[in-house]
Design a binder for these strands. Structure first.
Length: 164
DNA sequence: TTAGTGATATCC
DNA sequence: GATATCACTAAA
């Protein structure tokens, strides 16, 4: 079953947790999501939009289900899915799949690039997320790679990992 | 542990 | 215009 707008139109910690174990489908490839993180609004100092709306973070303010793809370190494309209220910048970062550990490797394997930025997983395009009945335990941890955020935000248990 | 990589934001 | 920064990876 394809996940629709209602699934993503919820607070991002809930979406991030529920996305673990789901299948990410892009142009005939199917990958099991094994790790996510959530970035939740301008008040989250780890979120790209915490310093306000810019050309780069515009996508985060779009409606739930919109895909935010961003180039990191000039080399790696990172894949996020926007959640919650339109106009409120929150999103879930897809950090890893069972078949491809690491956010950069994941997009490389699928062939996702900046061309997918502003696309949508609920609009009937070539990228979507499926619930195929797979169930697993989910454990939480602190987010990684956000040393620029306040300590308070670094402590949040906003990383979700599939437990075998 | 460290180099590489390039778009974006933030300074002149 | 120039520089500093970065939600990472691969090689050592």
């Amino acid at each position: 079953m394809k996940l629709g707008y209602g699934f993503f139109y919820r607070p991002c910690p809930e979406v991030a947790r529920d996305l673990v174990g789901k299948a990410l489908v892009f142009r005939g490839q199917r990958l099991r999501i094994s790790e996510t993180e959530c970035y939740c609004g301008e008040e989250d100092t780890a979120c790209h939009a915490s310093k306000g709306r810019t050309k780069r973070t515009e996508t985060l303010y779009m409606e739930a289900g919109t895909v935010y793809v961003y180039l990191c370190y000039g080399v790696h494309w990172l894949l996020n899915i926007v959640t919650g209220e339109e106009g409120h910048p929150e999103a879930v970062l897809i950090r890893a799949c069972v078949e491809a550990p690491g956010p950069g490797r994941l997009t490389k394997k699928l062939g996702i690039t900046g061309e997918q930025n502003r696309a949508s997983v609920v609009a009937g395009g070539d990228l979507w997320v499926e619930d195929d009945g797979f169930a697993c335990n989910v454990v939480t941890d602190k987010r990684v790679g956000i040393g620029y955020a306040t300590r308070e935000d670094q402590e949040r248990q906003w990383r979700y990992i599939m437990e075998l």
